[in-house]
């Protein structure tokens, strides 16, 4: 056990990788439906992110604790069943917290079930790792997903309605870019963020290669 632990990264790394190195939205480009559909305001984005994170953490915990007793053949069925359970739970919890929020998110809460990110983490991580590690992985990925949604929701709300979290930013003279809160705006904002990250990665790669050349020289 200690051997395995030494090979594996530490718990903090497990948590942080979901936020930065393997960010589900910008790096893995997973679970795109909610990313684009409900990010027209920052509040919706935050709520969707938290709901997904909750399902992710809970399903990771349960999958990890039953991983020894579930045979390989019925693995996917069992995972989907666990995920669907927690999505139903989240659906009722959101209805109990705020009906307005439930109306804004609509059927997309139920569609968390088919978010490839959750099944992906259950299959790739939680079914192979211990309870604590799976919890941290779920928490990290969930946080990363929420942050990604917030990045999109923030930009779309600022440009599309001139406000952030419902607080008006520019006063009444601001003419909002309505297209940003409409479906095409979702695609364009995500494209913008992906371009930004590609540009950063390229700049980094370029400076690294020039460093290597310098050391070689």
């Amino acid at each position: 056990m200690t051997n395995i632990d030494q090979k594996h990264p530490t718990g903090t790394d497990e948590f942080l990788k979901g936020i930065w190195k393997q960010n589900p939205v910008f790096v893995q480009v997973l679970g795109m439906c909610p990313v684009l559909a409900v990010t027209n305001t920052a509040v919706n984005a935050l709520a969707m992110g938290l709901a997904t994170a909750f399902v992710l953490v809970m399903s990771n915990l349960v999958v990890s604790s039953v991983r020894q007793i579930v045979p390989k053949q019925v693995r996917i069925v069992s995972f989907i069943m666990i995920i669907a359970t927690f999505v139903t739970v989240v659906d009722y919890l959101i209805q109990a917290i705020s009906l307005d929020l439930h109306k804004a998110l609509g059927a997309f809460i139920s569609l968390i079930v088919v978010n490839c990110l959750i099944l992906g983490r259950a299959e790739a991580f939680a079914s192979k790792n211990g309870l604590g590690r799976s919890f941290l992985d779920g928490l990290g990925m969930g946080t990363g997903f929420t942050l990604g949604l917030l990045c999109l929701g923030g930009v779309r709300e600022i440009l599309g309605s001139g406000s952030l979290f419902g607080v008006s930013l520019f006063g009444s003279s601001f003419q909002p870019w309505v297209v940003m809160v409409l479906p095409p705006g979702g695609f364009f904002t995500l494209a913008g963020w992906l371009l930004f990250f590609n540009w950063r990665a390229q700049a980094k790669a370029r400076s690294e290669t020039s460093n290597v050349k310098e050391t070689l020289a």
Binding site: V66, I69, P71, M81, I82, A84, T88, Y92, Q95
Partner: peptide, 28 residues
Amino acid sequence: PMYRAVVGLGFLCGFIIVGVYEGTKPII
């Protein structure tokens, strides 16, 4: 073991769902 796992999990999931449903129903 396959039956055991699937049926066991089914029971567990059913309990969770019904519990939360009954708990949140009056509030909703």
